[in-house]
């Protein structure tokens, strides 16, 4: 296969995009022109831009919820094609997406929502058995993930009874159980008060750096972006551009 402009460095990057383009479902042309982007282990990138600029479309495309419209994508040095092989599907499971609120299953207890991150590794039978009788080991895993996000002791609480900020942390814990190498967060603090927002951003950037995950997080507040992230990229008029702080993107992206 043609190298498609991946440099020698791209091998060690968590995520490498070349001439990458995204679009919502039902739109045939590229609406979000990402161009080239390399994300290194432990690097935290903030994604800003006005509402409707395509931040969610971009993140959902990276998360596998939308098909890519143009260019190439490499995850941990492996080229990802449209028709994924079994090995690539295993790799895709290591991309975790934390959305805004309301993507947890509220009637389930907290631990079931957390361990839902492991579903990709479990068989259907295993999943059914867990709902009837979770093993002590699995509950310990869930508790460990909850401890990391500062929610120790909430294991058996009904998820619907938690506050907005707590639910956001449960979603992060679920993403951690997925053991991701790339963590995507779509406006994770949009509906949180400033104090909780700071705590959540501090948490995910710290976890990303500690565990060497790449992090792309969309945000509305430039001040928070500069405070917690290594790089800030802005989506403007359908193109991804550097907004502040040293940008390592190649200046002249190749067009497909």
């Amino acid at each position: 296969m043609k190298a498609a402009g991946f440099g020698r460095d791209a091998a060690s990057a968590v995520l490498s995009l070349r001439s990458f383009g995204a679009a919502p479902l039902g739109v045939d042309r590229v609406l979000v022109d990402v161009g080239d982007l390399d994300l290194w282990p432990g690097e935290c990138v903030a994604l800003t831009g006005p509402s409707g600029s395509g931040k969610t479309t971009f993140l959902r495309t990276l998360g596998g919820q939308l098909p890519p419209r143009a260019g190439h994508m490499r995850l941990a040095g492996q080229e990802l094609a449209q028709a994924a092989t079994a090995q690539q599907r295993t790799l895709l499971r290591r991309i975790a997406l934390v959305a805004q609120q309301h993507d947890l299953v509220e009637p389930l207890p907290v631990h079931a929502n957390v361990m839902a991150g492991a579903l990709g590794r479990w068989s259907n039978l295993h999943a059914l058995r867990y709902l009837i009788r979770p093993s002590a080991e699995e509950l310990a895993d869930a508790e460990a993930a909850l401890e990391l996000v500062g929610l120790a002791g909430k294991l058996r609480e009904p998820t619907g009874r938690l506050s907005g900020g707590e639910q956001q942390r449960v979603a992060i814990a679920r993403a951690l159980v997925q053991a991701p190498i790339l963590l995507l967060a779509d406006e994770p603090v949009a509906s949180l008060d400033p104090r909780t927002a700071n705590a959540v951003l501090g948490l995910i950037t710290r976890l990303a750096r500690e565990r060497g995950m790449g992090l792309i997080c969309s945000l509305h507040q430039p001040r928070l972006a500069e405070r917690y992230f290594d790089r800030v990229l802005e989506l403007r008029d359908g193109r991804l551009e550097a907004a502040a702080i040293g940008d390592s993107r190649s200046a002249a992206p190749e067009r497909a």
Partner: peptide, 13 residues
């Protein structure tokens, strides 16, 4: 739809 989409993204069958 949102919670179901999140589960699919996490790799659930």
């Amino acid at each position: 739809e949102a919670p179901l989409r999140a589960l699919r993204t996490a790799g659930a069958s």
